[in-house]
């Protein structure tokens, strides 16, 4: 099939950017979206045009590196699918495809479709851990964690930190990302000791990084390639109230 791409091109963080139009010819339905972009880039290089810069790495939907808004939806809007796992068979011959970077003040553009997501690391650094030391730990079975709790923690821990929740959120908020970590550690006994400080520090960091406030649009859950549920935000809110009360 043949497609028309409208791709955001921006030379650097402070340079002006705009949508450029490129043609993608002979696209195979079995190609992944990124492989289609690879081929467009090959064509651009041959023509002496600078190829489109985009983040990608594992190409199997787990590293969280790929980050493109396709036709207005982060990762292209297929259920539980990252851009790298999006395949061209979900497009039709002659389609116009708009490809834009994650947009949020807290994610400044580095180049073209590449953004700086360092602020997500800052949120984790504010408390997304248990303060255990290396070594000197009791046996793994010393703490019993019933299956429902372990499953709940795992549901939250599936977050790949790609930032789609922020890109999709009308408020540019990273609340789903933050809540996934808060909820995972709050439900496990080893995380409970620091739960109050964690929820305060992480939400404080979220604000300081320039992310917006959560106003319950739930667009984050719809954008999330791992289907992280907004129930974790409700859990974060409960944890916050508990912290206030304590």
């Amino acid at each position: 099939m043949n497609l028309t791409l409208h791709v955001w091109r921006q030379k650097g963080p402070n340079a002006p950017g705009k949508l450029e139009t490129y043609d993608a010819h002979n696209v195979s339905p079995d190609q992944s979206f990124l492989e289609m972009l690879d081929e467009v880039n090959e064509g651009l290089i041959r023509k002496g045009v600078e190829p489109i810069a985009f983040d990608h790495d594992c190409r199997e939907g787990i590293c969280g590196m790929c980050s493109q808004v396709i036709n207005g939806v982060p990762h292209g809007g297929q259920d539980r699918t990252t851009v790298c796992q999006l395949h061209m068979r979900s497009f039709k011959d002659g389609d116009n495809i708009f490809i834009e970077p994650w947009r949020a003040t807290a994610f400044p553009i580095v180049k073209d479709l590449v953004v700086d997501r360092g602020n997500l690391d800052v949120i984790i650094q504010a408390g997304g851990y248990t303060s255990c030391h290396t070594g000197g730990i009791a046996d793994g079975n010393a703490l019993l964690i019933p299956k429902p709790e372990a499953d709940y923690a795992m549901d939250a821990a599936e977050c790949i930190g790609c930032g789609a929740c922020v890109a999709g959120c009308p408020n540019g908020s990273a609340m789903l990302f933050t809540s996934a970590k808060v909820a995972q550690l709050a439900v496990l006994p080893q995380g409970k000791a620091e739960a109050a400080a964690r929820v305060n520090n992480m939400t404080e960091a979220l604000k300081d990084c320039g992310f917006g406030n959560c106003t319950n649009h739930y667009e984050c859950q719809a954008s999330c390639p791992k289907g992280i549920n907004v129930k974790f935000i409700a859990k974060l809110n409960r944890e916050y109230l508990k912290a206030i009360a304590s």
Binding site: H6, W8, L19, V69, N71, G72, V73, G77, F98, E100, R103, G168, P170, H217, Y218, E219, Q221, A222, S223
Partner: peptide, 10 residues
């Protein structure tokens, strides 16, 4: 905003 503005859940 985005050039194409589409919301799924909002």
């Amino acid at each position: 905003g985005y050039a194409v503005n589409k919301k799924i859940k909002a």
